[in-house]
Each structure stands twice: as structure tokens, then as C-alpha cells.
Amino acid sequence: MTHERSVFLRALGAQTDRLAPEVRAYVEGPPRGEIGVGEGVFEVAGSPWRWMLRLAQPFMGPGLLVPRYERDVPFTIIERPAEGLSDLPVLAASRALRFRGGLERFDDVLRLGREPGTLVNIVGDGGRLEILLDVTVMEDGALRLTTRSTRARIGGHRLRLPRLLGIDGVVVNGYDRARSRGTITARMRNPLLGTVMEYRGWFRYEHRIAPEQPQGAQIA
């Protein structure tokens, strides 16, 4: 994949050279015509507020909330690079978490933000939540995504949530050279509730031939 086709590398710009080689290989993504598939285990995954999220699920829609909380959760992530509006790179990801209590999905789409060094994360099947992320590289070469603001779609409008209702999230993608596998740590917090969702664990990643898509299909 070229630099121009990776939403992460486009956002990072000059910071790209600071990425660890293995992390850069991951965020470059698969070449045209292929998808990225990761298989791994989360040491812990879900939300300690699972009962509250279960109540909110009918209003927020599928692919957004994970109303479970367990340890040693196997998962699969499928990433599909695409082209959005104005032929800018977009990355759609779907995560399947295999809890002992049942399967849960968490889906999102990443596109470039208006400011350099930012991405917009559209979460859930209905795109009910939109998160502006700052994209940086850590001293050890890991990729770090940090929440700057959160918007919710209400009645056809996207409204910025006040801090007390918003989410402060940090996601770090690194690499464990001793075990030759990627690592991921994520925590989403609310000022009132504390941690509302977290997951941390490891995965191994490969490229596979993508299923055929309708000609001209795009992701907005």
C-alpha cells in the first residue's frame, strides 16, 4: 500500500518515520484488492457498566456498545481499506468478540479529519457516535489515538456533547517483538462514570484476498 492509501499514515504525515517498523507495517494496511485480518485474545474486554449499556443498546443501535465484561476473550478484527468522498482514504473495521456469554460486534469507520494529525472515528452501524481523534507516535514507536471531542447524531443533526456526557478515550497499538505479535490497549472513560469500556490484548495480522465488492462502491 502506498502512503496515500493509508488513513493512518496520511494523518501522521512527518511523524510516520517515528513508527516502529512492525507498527508501520500494520497501519499501512493491505494492498489494493485485499483485506487485513487479525486474530488474537483480549486479556480483558467490555464494560463494567454492562447493565446500563444493555438498556441503551436499542437507542444506540448495533455494532457500538459491548454490554459484557470478561477476561481471556478471543477476537477477530477485519479491516477494509476503501475510498470515501473526494477519493480520500477510509478504513472500515469490524471486531467480533467471542465472550463466553455470547458474540458481540464493535464496528467503526476511520476517515481523515480536517486538521493535520487528526482522524474522525464514526462508531456503530448507524454512525450514531462521531469521535475526533488526535493521532501521535509514542517514544517506543507505538501508535496512539486520543479523543479530542465527541459528537452524537440526534434527529439528523450532529451535536457536540458536553464534557460530562462525552468520552475520553486512548488507544495504543504497539508490537511485542519477543512474541512476534501486535498489541492493543484501549480505555474509554466518562468524567461521571469512570471507565465505560476497555480492552487490552494481543493479535497476529495478515492480508487476505478481499471478497468482491459492487463496482464503484464507496464508504462515505
Rank of each mutant, 00 (worst) to 15 (best):
G46S: 11
Q57A: 15
A45S: 15
Q57E: 15
M52P: 02
G61R: 05
Q57K: 13
L64I: 04
V44G: 10
G46R: 10
R50E: 01
G63F: 05
P48M: 03
Y69V: 10
L64P: 00
P74T: 15
S47I: 04
L65H: 05
P62N: 08
L65E: 00
L64A: 01
P58L: 09
R50V: 04
L64W: 05
R71F: 14
P58K: 06
V66N: 05
A56W: 05
F59D: 02
S47H: 04
W51G: 03
P67W: 06
L55V: 15
V44S: 10
R54G: 06
M60V: 11
S47A: 04
L53D: 00
V73C: 09
P74G: 11
P74Q: 13
A56I: 00
F59R: 07
G61K: 06
R68I: 06
F75Y: 07
R68D: 15
R68M: 14
R54S: 10
G46A: 12
R50P: 08
P74L: 08
L64D: 01
P58S: 14
V66D: 01
E43L: 13
R50Y: 08
F59V: 10
R68L: 10
V44C: 10
M52F: 06
R68P: 09
Y69G: 06
L53P: 03
W51C: 02
R54E: 12
S47M: 00
G63S: 07
G61I: 02
F59W: 09
L55T: 13
L65C: 03
P58E: 11
M60N: 04
V44M: 07
W49L: 04
L53E: 01
W51V: 04
V44H: 08
E70Y: 15
Q57R: 15
A45L: 11
R68V: 11
R68F: 11
P67V: 09
P62G: 07
V66F: 00
P48N: 07
W51F: 07
R50S: 05
P62Y: 07
V44N: 01
Q57C: 06
V73T: 13
F75G: 05
L53W: 04
L55Q: 09
W51E: 01
G63C: 06
A56H: 03
G61T: 08
P48L: 02
W49Q: 04
Q57M: 12
R54T: 12
M52W: 03
S47Y: 01
V66T: 09
R68H: 15
V66A: 02
L64G: 00
A45Y: 12
G46N: 12
G61V: 05
M60T: 09
R71E: 15
V66E: 06
R50H: 12
R54W: 14
P58H: 11
E70K: 14
V44A: 11
Q57T: 14
F75E: 09
E70I: 14
P74E: 10
V73Q: 12
L53G: 02
F59A: 11
P58C: 11
L55K: 11
E43P: 06
R50W: 06
Y69F: 15
F75S: 00
V66M: 02
A56K: 01
S47R: 04
F75K: 01
D72Q: 14
